[in-house]
Design a protein around this nucleic acid. Structure first.
Lengths: 331, 331
DNA sequence: GCCCTATTTGCTCATATGAGCACTCAGGGG
DNA sequence: CCCCTGAGTGCTCATATGAGCAAATAGGGC
């Protein structure tokens, strides 16, 4: 192969990088090949890295994007963030599993270990329950914070999620025996005031930590599939600015309840519990949930976030949501 | 951020890699964070690399794929190969320019410098001419090896290519004043025997090196655009096994002339000149030319290849084209 | 033409890293 | 029950690398 002897340092730095990184040569050897001293080679390589020509990627489903995590913590005031890569994920569900795995790892490593964990339900949380290791903790009790699915074939999933998380931590699961959304406010109020239900809600309100996901305001919402909402009602919610739901409560981009009447018929803890929680872990993945994630994170409805790279980037790229005089975002 | 303390070494190696490669920590620091000795960290990183979890990529339009180049040389007996990355190329023409740049760099670095360079014509070679630096060599004469385009608005491109390459090397350009394909054999023979034309062909046959591209056997061929062939004739060539043309001569996958009668009407050097050349540099890019490239490379019609990553991979992935008892192809 | 300055180059030295080796320890067979 | 084996661990030492500094060099103003 003919030697390349260009005066151009940039090109030379690429040639050096090829030999150093791709061919595993030492800087000395690279120097011998290109006719340079080994110090010059070192400087060329430094320049190549400086210019961003060298990309090092960790390809593993359980890899994390620490730089994005740091930016999320700094720019959105989060206590913790876990960001998993999208590269190589072939489907939405594969991505969801990666995120769920990240959440399971995070939960198992969470200190102090919460005595009581409040959880919602959904496919994401169900995955988290499945992926949690046996004995991920010892003596963690679990309580549901909102009404469960009970109308269609997915009935039981909500309960199973809570039970499995508790079982794997040798703790007790407390279920909330109620629909998610009632047809009439009166029904909701009377259930809420029922002694057993009220006791569960009291327990939930006292939880040391919350683990929850969010739903999109689209026709694929679990609330529509479960029959709690019609597609028409969903369209109306969207028209009024809804971006998604948290604990069954539909919010707009400002994190405010979109439809107070509907919210009155929704059973479970209110969002103020989330706002005041010392540990509120949001687990969310997929493009359809970018908007609702933004609403949650930007309005302080979570203290920790477990998500995918694309969602993290979405949170970081929009400018108008941050303080204009915020810190610079280059790491 | 909570510490992760898994027994699983694989996961641990990913955590270590994140801190070492993404966060620029030393192995010592990584060890302190993960609660490991620095030797353990070194071993975990080695394992991560071993397992292919660390991908290092050089992102630059002029970067080269040395590993692929080596495999091409070894498996196809080439003297030289230049492979440029496709990553980041947004169009066929951008890719063609990258390859042309690679060819220009290669040509400028070629030793010994050929006294006489035989060239064909086409968009790719025109790009090479444009991208060659002024004074890329001194005293290199250029000669056309096959009849030029002269029918449509691209008239003059072929001549311009030769002239520019020669000018930038302070050499003379010798043009072949003739159409590429004649209607009747008799016309072709008489032109060929014309004193001036014969002299050019003699010069071309004596060239120290050839620089050429190839065309696909499709309706987008330059021969159709220039009016030398009709789409019907092309379809017939394809039916008879044509994969593309070299110097205006259509060949099949075995590198044989598809239509001897047509070939008789094609003016310029024959492919035997290419076969016996000590330096024959093929410059080719794009998916439409994979088949013809394969035919050329597998049948010894070039000694050096300048191409893109995708074409190189195409040449390397088909199994039945190589000696079954060839060397192993892991690098 | 000369000198002054800014940049580049070659070096010394401290540090980071990988190879190789001795040691430990768990588990299984005699 | 004890020894034996083999994986895994911690270490020593040689090598590779980056920081910092002095010498050289280029370029520009006077």
């Amino acid at each position: 192969m003919p030697r390349i002897d260009t005066a151009d340092d940039e090109l030379l730095s690429i040639r050096a990088a090829e030999l150093y990184y791709d061919e595993d040569k030492t800087q000395d050897e690279v120097g011998a090949i290109l006719g340079l001293t080994r110090w010059k080679v070192g400087r060329l390589l430094a320049a190549a890295r400086e210019n961003g020509y060298i990309r090092i990627e960790i390809v593993h489903p359980r890899a994390r994007k620490l730089a994005l995590e740091r930016q999320l913590r700094e720019r959105h005031g989060l206590t913790d963030a876990v960001v998993v890569p999208v590269a190589g994920a072939r489907s939405e569900s594969e991505l969801r599993e990666r995120v769920a795995q990240g959440a399971a790892d995070y939960l198992a490593a969470l200190r102090p270990v919460p005595r009581m964990l409040g959880i919602s339900w959904g496919r994401t949380l169900h995955d988290v329950a499945t992926l949690l290791g046996e004995q991920w903790a010892v003596g963690v009790d679990v309580v549901q914070v909102n009404g469960g699915v009970s109308v269609n074939q997915r009935a039981g999933t909500a309960a199973a999620t809570a039970v499995e998380i508790a079982r794997k931590a040798s703790g007790e699961a407390t279920l909330l025996p109620s629909p998610a959304i009632l047809e009439r406010v009166e029904t909701k109020t009377s259930i809420e005031n029922d002694r057993t239900v009220a006791a569960v809600l009291d327990e939930a309100a006292a939880a040391a930590a919350y683990l929850f996901s969010a739903g999109p305001a689209t026709h694929s919402s679990a609330h529509i599939q479960s029959g709690y909402l019609t597609t028409g009602e969903m369209d109306e919610l969207v028209r009024r600015g809804a971006v998604g739901d948290v604990w069954g409560r539909y919010i707009n981009a400002e994190g405010m309840i979109v439809d107070p009447a509907l919210d009155q018929r929704t059973l479970g803890l209110g969002l103020t519990s989330l706002q005041h929680a010392s540990t509120a872990i949001l687990v969310v993945s997929g493009e359809s949930k970018h908007a609702v994630t933004r609403a949650i994170v930007r309005n302080g409805l979570c203290t920790a976030l477990v998500t995918d790279e694309a969602t993290a980037l979405d949170l970081l790229t929009d400018t108008f949501g941050d303080d204009p005089d915020d810190k610079d975002n280059n790491d």
